[in-house]
Design a protein around this nucleic acid. Structure first.
Lengths: 204, 204
DNA sequence: TGCCAGACTAAACAGTTGTTCAGTACGTTG
DNA sequence: CAACGTACTGAACAACTGTTTAGTCTGGCA
């Protein structure tokens, strides 16, 4: 599928990749065009040749990242198993690439068209997911039904956003597939029964 | 004659306040010393005179912010009412000042001594809070007891971190005291019984 | 073969960056 | 009074910023 052909190892792609890394690590404002070019082993002038400006480079990186996430979300949309979908969302989206996580972190906490679009999509997904969960459960949501999807997103996105401060307090890598699966199971348990399980039977 | 020589309207304090605002709005890397000085109506050279360097200024702002938060947390430590404490944490800490929220957002998502110290403190608080909650409930935690406090922090910090992307999807100001109280009640309900309430009884 | 579009570069542009320096104003202390 | 420390300033510093320009190289097409 993803061929990664030579055509995508061109200067343009190298610059975008280097920018993703540096923007994720240092932030957009603190990253110079020269630093990006140097990291890609290319000339600074090539940035403006390919992307028009530094802002154009950011737009290209944004688009690339959002495309990747959009594709991951689309892949998941078909799933029917609750557990699998909740877990898969986290795994596919955020487990993948530490750089992607870092970049996403920065995107999500500013108000921009990109971030608004991404969050709207996540919110819609959370609502669908909640409906499924409600259907599997008895039915209606107890508390504030409008706030519930936001709570769900907090549980999913929280570890992503707080990774830098949470990780030092944990002994296992937060985005290891196994840990991630365990976490999404815990999230689901919390959403269904709260922390203090009403049904201590079932799953071991 | 300064109108109020009361130790905290001096140039030093004005610079710190201006820096807090600009760092919160644009980030540290994207804020120039000149911009800070101009916002405070002072000369750029005064920044280095008082704080040694731009980095020194950041340290001073960090210290100021963490002190404020530490004080707020200390005030709460005495509380006994569950609902009140969970709500009060959010209200006192984050409801207060939009600038503080913005700054905190940036601090929390990088790995630094400041952020590590702050999060460690929050984590300890969450554990205490959870113990209280568990005591009020029957007893032990169902799922992963080590992860539970992190989930709690996700619910509390999530809206803070995601404010810029969440707010456009809501019709009321997220950090309005009333909204905040409702949110913390919803969080507590979620933690106790999950989204699909087992006990639809009274509520305050 | 000649030719040209596109990838790519070195050098230079004007503006901004954090920081330094020399010096002024002023309240306190000797 | 003089001397001093401290808040504060404008001007200048070298280094860096994003961007421009003029030019070299290369692969494909006429």
């Amino acid at each position: 599928m993803r061929a990664t052909p030579a055509s995508d190892l061109t200067g343009r792609a190298r610059l975008r990749a280097a920018a993703l890394r540096l923007f994720a690590e240092r932030g957009f404002g603190a990253t110079s065009v020269r630093a990006v070019a140097a990291a890609a082993g290319l000339s600074p002038a090539l940035v403006v040749h390919h992307f028009g400006s530094k802002e154009g480079l950011r737009a290209a990186v944004d688009e690339d990242v959002l495309d990747r996430i959009g594709a991951a979300l689309r892949d998941i949309d078909g799933t029917e198993d609750l557990m699998a979908s909740l877990g898969a969302v986290s795994a596919r989206m955020f487990g993948a690439d530490p750089l992607l996580r870092g970049y996403l972190r920065r995107v999500l906490l500013e108000e921009s068209p990109s971030s608004a679009a991404l969050f709207a999509r996540l919110l819609a997904g959370a609502r669908v997911e909640l409906d499924r969960l409600a259907a599997a459960e008895e039915g209606r949501i107890d508390g504030d039904p409008q706030w519930a999807p936001f709570q769900m997103l907090c549980l999913i996105l929280g570890p992503l956003l707080l990774e830098p401060v949470m990780q030092p307090n944990l002994d296992q890598p937060m985005f290891d597939p196994q840990v991630l699966a365990r976490r999404s199971a815990a999230n689901q348990r919390l959403l269904r029964h709260g922390l203090f399980g009403a049904t201590p039977d079932a799953e071991g």
